[in-house]
Amino acid sequence: MKTEEHSPEMKIDLLRQMLRIRRFEEKAAELYSAAKIRGFLHLYIGQEAIAAGAMRALTAEDAVVSTYREHGHALARGVAAAAIMAEMYGKAEGCCHGRGGSMHLFDVSKRFYGGNAIVAGGLPLALGLALADKLAGRARVTACFFGDGAVAEGEFHETMNLAVLWKLPLLLLCENNLYAMGTAIARALSETDLCKKAESYRMPAERIDGMDALAVAVASADATAAVRAGEGPRFLELTTYRFRPHSMFDPDLYRDKAEIAEWKKRDPLPRHIGRLKEEGLLDAAKIDAIERAVADELAQAVAFADAGTLEPVESLTRDVYARTP
């Protein structure tokens, strides 16, 4: 990573992005209890360092393919918080007119190719985004996020093989939070060393502490630079932990309380704040200012969603085809 990227501004921005995600999701949980957000809600709390760190490495021209646990990815990518919140409410003003809700955020202006409630569903199509760039000679990168759970699906393996075979400009970001719903990784994968798996496809891979925003930012920048330079795909395993249950329905009976507590000690936010304070980049007043800006953005997003309207029934059939038959 280039040293100028280590600038104080960059470190402060990592904090700002993580806070935006954390506060947004805390609010989302509250709004879910108030039945303003319905259906399924998967919180990213605990994993914010990854979205914040990785997204920095991308330019506006790069593409992002995400999962159903994607509020953090969308926010860090620059999808408007208000449009995300309105989508989660199911409002017409949402980024997809309220048709998809929490798990289906899209924004063409950010080359954000969606959340996806089908685990591993985004992997193979990320190949196509990358191949199109390669064929056109564009130095763009496609970044594809997925969880450890996706690694057991066939789509993952087809993607790994084709990405290397065709030397595609693809950055694969596996957020290994050790569980796929109730299934611990050791009960799901014959080889739990995900980097070894990647290497078996001859894909360069690195394991990064996903609770450390700076480490994620550095590794993502390096990997993205290599991908952009035409060196082929890169795989990053980002070790992390979700602090909340899988979804709002999950009683979370399969994880040890002590294990959760242990991981919470590694919360990426206090950790990053501690580092910045130590380096003299941050004091209480500055944190306060960031928190206030984040709170303002969030309040506006909630007000926007509250004021939103439902898509009229007549437009239910819009966008099924280019022209409604």
Partner: peptide, 13 residues
């Protein structure tokens, strides 16, 4: 309807 299953208009669907 002949559409993907919608989130907010589910009860109209």
């Amino acid at each position: 309807f002949d559409t993907p299953f919608p989130y907010s208009l589910e009860h109209d669907y």
